[in-house]
């Protein structure tokens, strides 16, 4: 126990790093991934702005990025990270790769939740003469709200776990701490402590996510 307390500042720093990486990548997922998800939905065959070439390209790009094992993506994007944040190491550099992975991840989840919106409801909006922008905001995003939040919860939790790999590029974070102390130095105590922290964080995120989603769901 004393041993863990001695590492207190390092653990707190690691939690901060995890939070930084997850917040940045999830923000990118929402700001860029969500519009891509909407694009995928609208351009899919038989949908509102059906456009086969656009859908094909967007869908292919999403699949391409998603096929990479994350560790490989992380290393492959080192030059890109250097270009964006000026450095190839540290939590910020890792956030670039995490964002690149999170964007298509959430885009697919957004596309899926939009597909759950009943076609008739969209049709009623079209029949009322609403503009595309109004349909996207007022019908699609509003009706898919619970699904979008559940998808976001899944994304946050997945990227807490992905961020553990960020240690490879000196990204730090609580997962990296567990790997460095527990796996590389056989320091079981620190590893267990890190895992307990991760379990608590994940439970908390899931609880908040599920609660919010159910509050937003008025379908009963």
């Amino acid at each position: 126990m004393d041993h863990i307390l001695a590492l207190k500042s390092e653990i707190i720093k690691a939690i901060g790093q995890t939070c930084t990486m997850v917040s940045i990548s999830v923000a990118a997922a929402v700001m860029i991934g969500m519009p891509i998800g909407i694009l995928l939905f609208l351009t899919a065959p038989g949908h509102l702005r059906s456009n086969r070439p656009v859908y094909r390209v967007a869908s292919y790009a999403v699949n391409l990025v998603r096929s990479f094992p994350f560790l490989i993506l992380l290393v492959a994007l080192i030059p890109f990270s250097r270009m964006i944040v000026g450095t190839a190491i540290g939590p910020l550099a890792a956030s670039v790769s995490l964002s690149v992975a999170a964007i298509p991840f959430y885009a697919r989840l957004v596309e899926q939740s939009l597909r759950e919106v009943p076609k008739g409801v969209i049709e009623a909006a079209v029949a009322s003469g609403a503009s595309m922008k109004h349909i996207v905001w007022g019908v699609l995003l509003s009706e898919a709200r619970p699904g979008l939040v559940s998808g976001l919860t899944v994304t946050v939790i997945s990227f807490i776990s992905y961020s553990a790999a960020a240690g490879t590029v000196g990204g730090g974070g609580i997962g990296d701490l567990a790997i460095r102390y527990g796996y590389q130095r056989f320091d079981t105590e620190v590893m267990v402590a890190c895992i307990v922290i991760l379990v608590v964080i994940v439970q908390l995120v899931q609880w908040v996510g599920s609660f919010t989603a159910s509050r937003l769901d008025k379908r009963k």
């Binding site: 009943p118 008739g120 409801v121 049709e123 009623a124 909006a125 029949a127 009322s128 003469g129 609403a130 503009s131 109004h134 007022g138 019908v139 509003s142 009706e143 709200r145 619970p146 937003l216 769901d217 008025k218 379908r219």
Partner: peptide, 26 residues
């Protein structure tokens, strides 16, 4: 041109008032 449907097609996450308001916003 107003339209009504067999399965109502109301926005389920919006109140009745907001459902009517939607078309006025449109």
């Amino acid at each position: 041109i107003g339209m009504i449907f067999q399965h109502y097609n109301l926005l389920s996450n919006e109140t009745c008032a907001a459902n009517v308001e939607f078309v006025l916003k449109a």
